[in-house]
Amino acid sequence: MLKPKKMDEIQKRLLMEIAGLHEVPEGAYNIRSNGKAIGRSSTANIDIESKDDGTGLDIRIKPGTKKESVHIPVVLTQSGLSEVVYNDFYVGEDADVVIVAGCGIDNCGTANSQHDGIHRFFVGKGARVKYVEKHYGSGDGTGKRILNPVTEVYMEENSSMEMEMVQIKGVDDTDRMTKAELAAGAALVVRERLMTHGEQRAISAYVVDLNGDGSSADVVSRSVARDDSYQKFDAKLVGSAACSGHTECDSIIMDNGRILAVPGLEANSVDAALVHEAAIGKIAGDQIIKLMTLGLSEAEAEEQIINGFLK
């Protein structure tokens, strides 16, 4: 076990934003800061080890592990640092765990800071995973804060995974790719919440292959594009068995924001039931009026509506 090194205030604040952590977490964890692990702990059931080639972590969760958690937050405070990290999660059969990832970048400098996390999940039969990933950026330098996560999920029979992905503030550029392959009876739920400001750009693409009978996927994105920001939501479901899939993109645009929603449904089986919904629009005028009748200014009303929408 690596004793956690002392973190400075900015690092602590980032950790709070992305992982809700004040202190060292319970359970297994690895805290990565500016390219190095500054704290790590494995437990009897969850083993975290560096890959032999040093490119990332192997996280092994024993079959049947119940109600344990893994935290692997990443913080970047050194302007100009660019890194690619490969983390593989092996979740044993019938395990039931919470995995909290996330990346916070504070860039006060002029060079771009970038973290590309490539996460692969091998979810064993009957296992249940709740995965939470938050992205956050701060710092007033001109250098960009860039995050390009790739997530691959391989789900065995009757496993389930719930992914909560949140990026509300401060990330200038994001290109997210999420792929999942589901065997029979596997269930994937994705809840994505995204807000972009200024000149930010965010792309989020999904390809979910529903390969087994009884598999299901529910991918829902709620997003707000403000100022001159741009978002693209591209969700593709491929149904090749008796499966059900639903994707939804529900977006609010403000100012000069732009959003492109690309529906993609591919059915290769007569028993595949796939649905896509997309709605993009500005905040409804009557919602603002209602909150103004309760004493809020127009700007306060908008904030409340957006906070609720992204809750």
Partner: peptide
């Protein structure tokens, strides 16, 4: 009016 995401408690508190 209906609001996505805002809860009844939120609305009453705002009021």
């Amino acid at each position: 009016v209906r609001f996505k995401g805002l809860q009844v408690l939120d609305l009453i508190r705002i009021a």
